[in-house]
Amino acid sequence: MLIRTEVPSDILSIDALLKEVFDTPAEAELVMALREQGQRTLSLVASSDEGDVIGHIFFSPVTVDGQDNGWQGLAPLCVKQDYRGQGIGQTLMQEATEILAELGYPVVVVLGDSQYYHKAGFVTAAEHGLHCSWPVPEESFMVQELLPDSLNGHQGLVAYSAPFSALS
């Protein structure tokens, strides 16, 4: 398996993977809209030894109480069904957060399975006075500090970019 940055020739494979993995095409449409609107901060793929895209992770900017602090939202993350349970998703997250930290992005937020994301170092955002703009269970909205002390002094509403509104 190889983890690398998305290249233009991956777009159709990523789109097909997202449509295969998720129940609706909403996530595929979201990723396409984020790309088109210049909201892609980082997009990585995991590819098989044969070169097929088997995993994908995408990050886009979020704001905290209307301020852009360089924070990123992780969405979506997916792994092809036949390859699940092999640690590919966790490896994608680890590689991505290392890259984001190297680039100076201080914090990542995610909305998802708390047990899964906790393994990657995420904690409940509410512990830091942060909340999501959608009515979701508190334990599902999580945060990870990539650069030391980046969460200090930041509380309030975390808002995703406009294309996310189409999901609700």
Results as ranks from 00 to 15, higher is better:
residue 132 C to Y: 15
residue 123 V to I: 09
residue 99 I to Q: 06
residue 2 L to H: 13
residue 36 E to M: 06
residue 150 S to Y: 02
residue 83 Y to H: 15
residue 42 L to F: 01
residue 76 P to W: 09
residue 120 A to C: 13
residue 125 A to F: 03
residue 103 L to C: 13
residue 65 D to E: 13
residue 22 F to Q: 04
residue 2 L to F: 14
residue 52 D to W: 08
residue 162 A to K: 15
residue 14 I to Y: 11
residue 168 S to Q: 07
residue 67 Q to R: 15
residue 152 N to M: 11
residue 75 A to E: 00
residue 23 D to W: 03
residue 128 H to Q: 13
residue 92 L to Q: 11
residue 82 D to W: 09
residue 16 A to R: 11
residue 8 P to Q: 04
residue 34 L to D: 00
residue 6 E to Q: 07
residue 53 V to M: 05
residue 77 L to G: 11
residue 134 W to H: 05
residue 63 T to S: 14
residue 72 Q to D: 08
residue 49 D to V: 04
residue 123 V to T: 15
residue 160 Y to M: 06
residue 108 V to I: 13
residue 104 G to W: 01
residue 151 L to F: 00
residue 89 G to L: 06
residue 100 L to Q: 12
residue 33 A to E: 14
residue 52 D to K: 15
residue 94 Q to G: 11
residue 78 C to K: 04
residue 67 Q to P: 01
residue 40 R to L: 06
residue 109 V to E: 08
residue 166 A to N: 14
residue 125 A to R: 05
residue 8 P to S: 15
residue 134 W to P: 01
residue 1 M to F: 01
residue 129 G to C: 02
residue 52 D to M: 08
residue 114 S to V: 14
residue 130 L to D: 00
residue 8 P to T: 04
residue 46 A to P: 07
residue 124 T to I: 10
residue 138 E to G: 00
residue 29 E to A: 10
residue 112 G to S: 10
residue 80 K to Q: 13
residue 123 V to D: 14
residue 74 L to H: 02
residue 3 I to P: 02
residue 87 G to I: 05
residue 41 T to D: 13
residue 112 G to P: 02
residue 142 M to L: 15
residue 8 P to R: 08
residue 107 V to F: 01
residue 13 S to N: 11
residue 4 R to P: 03
residue 128 H to D: 00
residue 145 E to N: 04
residue 89 G to E: 05
residue 56 H to P: 08
residue 92 L to G: 14
residue 167 L to F: 08
residue 32 M to K: 12
residue 162 A to D: 11
residue 42 L to C: 01
residue 47 S to M: 12
residue 165 S to R: 12
residue 142 M to R: 02
residue 14 I to K: 01
residue 96 A to L: 11
residue 96 A to D: 06
residue 29 E to L: 10
residue 6 E to R: 04
residue 150 S to K: 03
residue 133 S to E: 14
residue 54 I to L: 11
residue 122 F to P: 05
residue 155 Q to M: 10
